[in-house]
Design a protein around this nucleic acid. Structure first.
Lengths: 140, 140
DNA sequence: ATACAACCTAAACCTAACTTTAGGTCAATA
DNA sequence: TATTGACCTAAAGTTAGGTTTAGGTTGTAT
């Protein structure tokens, strides 16, 4: 079973031009072509793209994702490198989540601040600023 | 109490050129200058920069952060807009955290996969591929 | 007075990750 | 067979968020 670039684009919600760009950049070294030179994606390519999406979400650069795929093709001699890559990415991702949770706490406070301000019609609500705002942020 | 651009840079771990860039882009409309034209940052500027960092962490564009600051300066007539902005950003941030957690689960599996592969000296470990790898990802 | 680090601006440059454009090919349908 | 929509490449363009460069000023210590 193979899929055209348009089908893959819809399935994975990645634009056609992005798929071609990934291919050109060497991130999909295995994509077969029909005799007429049309890309025919298979399950492996799909898994590959899902891995790209996963790593991209965590902020890994395309060139580093490419390096990882190259290591995969080199075989068992690169297991150690790949292990360390994922250990590092795990750390980074955990830190990113922490950072986002801190930011979310701040944003949640702002939601509350503006909910009350909206109710009162002004950001100068006695008690609100002193008790909450100052704790996080003097900027309204 | 005021601070030089170099002091702020160290305090907040933002490069001097980035601070000047933010100022140029109008994200710090309130920064005072000495008679000799040297920037003198105050507590409000620091809070402003912390807010920028917070919103940037959640993926907000600098131009949208700027818009938010402009709304702040316009006063109580923009409370509603600001409230909606933060409600939206809250949603987005929660989704980002979810996405990162999904990615982390995948990465954690890869760590385990490579830990075992490293131990065995090969990624062709009977049982590993069938029981775990296929569940997530055929790519090694 | 002079050296020297820290500051200033404007403008050019950079990188990642795409997207768009231009010009052409392929394959199924009327 | 002619059209049409989906595909192809190469190359140029875009955007965000900076950094670097070049040339000049400020302020403090010797």
């Amino acid at each position: 079973m193979t899929y055209s670039i348009g089908e893959i684009s819809e399935m994975l919600n990645i634009s056609i031009s992005t798929l071609r760009y990934y291919d050109k950049e060497g991130l999909l070294p295995l994509v077969n072509r029909t005799p007429g030179n049309i890309r025919a994606f298979n399950e492996t390519d799909i898994e590959c793209l899902k891995m790209i999406e996963c790593l991209k979400t965590t902020g890994m650069l395309l060139k580093d994702i490419k390096t990882f795929f190259e290591w995969c093709e080199e075989g068992d001699s690169t297991i150690e490198k790949r292990y360390e890559l994922f250990l590092m990415q795990k750390e980074k991702t955990e830190k990113q989540i922490e950072e986002l949770q801190k930011a979310l706490a701040r944003i949640n406070y702002k939601c509350e601040f503006y909910r009350i301000s909206k109710e009162k019609g002004t950001t100068d609500v006695p008690g609100l600023r002193e008790e909450l705002s100052m704790k996080f942020l003097s900027l309204k």
